[in-house]
Simulated assay, not measured.
Amino acid sequence: MMKNFNMLMFLHVTIMGTIMSLSANNWLTIWTGLEISIMSIMPMIPNNNFLSSEASVKYFMIQSISSSMMMLGVLLLLINSKIEYQMILTSSMMLKMGIAPFHNWILEMIESVELMIMFLLLTLMKIAPLNMISYLMFKNNLFIMTSLLVGSVFGLNQMSLRKMMCYSSIFNMSFMLASISTNSIWWFYMGTYSLMLISILFILSKMKINYINQLSLNEEKMSSKMNIWLAMLSMGGMPPMMGFMLKLMVIQMMMSSKEFLISIIMIMSSVLVMFYYLRLSFVSILFASSSMKWKAFSTVKSSSWIIMINIFMMPLLLMLKT
């Protein structure tokens, strides 16, 4: 009980630090909120895995380096230095979020943390740095293209679902960076991506799956396999799932901004991401299965919530967009 109370307390302080950074009007308060979030999530990282303590120390070192870079950029800003302080501030935030090419640290620690901490690292801990980047007038095209290529290409040869989710997060972060100039778009993208990610992690936790080959060997009900199948298709961006609407919205924005090179890279890399999510879908629903898929939802009524969200969300998003 005490452990649960401590986890709840640290989670609340982490959320409080993020809110503090979002509502701040000066760089010092933003830095303070970021440090509160970092110090609060660190006690939640250690678990029964013997590598979790190493992951906690690694996370502390990386975040300390990025915070030092941020304070250096703020000092250069305050003294009106000719050094490009916006580049230093942006690089510190990219390192803090684990965006390519600063992504190796999050890939190494993601295997040893619990799924709830993984969700926090990939969603909540990236909101405040993204909001800070939106304050800077710095072109992020290099980081966007690098994240698109790294997240799509390097995810093809992964057998670990955790690392695949991490590469997918890097890929989706590039779409958020591309729309960082419009707060309503990247906030909506982050919220919808968080909904898709938590649905996948909930199913993986329930089925106790960590690797691709476990998808075909598990003895779960067909309704559970259908749920993970639809969640994977939505995360990959298969129309008419809601994940497709997010990517379409950002690509349309980039085309209207005359960013044709980034738009082409987005489209080509989205095909690669769709490929490895389709591979997961085939393994989970087609192989080693002799039952008829269209009867999966006729027996369990509670298993249809994912298909309802994924399919019927896209017409609603189109209505809101217009």
Rank of each mutant, 00 (worst) to 15 (best):
P240V: 14
Y189G: 03
L217C: 09
L124N: 07
M190I: 13
N183M: 13
G191I: 13
I144L: 14
I170Q: 02
L156V: 10
S134K: 09
Y211M: 08
S174T: 08
K258Q: 08
T123L: 12
M266R: 06
L148M: 11
I200D: 03
S257P: 01
K139H: 13
Q252F: 10
I198A: 08
F244Y: 11
L124I: 14
L233M: 11
K247P: 12
M165V: 11
M125P: 05
M173Q: 14
I180Y: 09
Y135H: 06
A231I: 02
M173D: 15
M232H: 02
M137V: 10
G243L: 04
G151N: 04
A128D: 08
S199G: 04
N210W: 09
L142R: 07
K221M: 01
S257R: 03
E219K: 15
P240D: 12
I251M: 08
I228N: 07
G236E: 06
M226R: 04
S234R: 00
I267S: 12
L261R: 00
M235I: 10
G155I: 10
G151H: 03
S169V: 11
M159Y: 15
I265E: 04
V250G: 04
M132N: 02
M132W: 01
I228A: 05
I133P: 09
I170G: 02
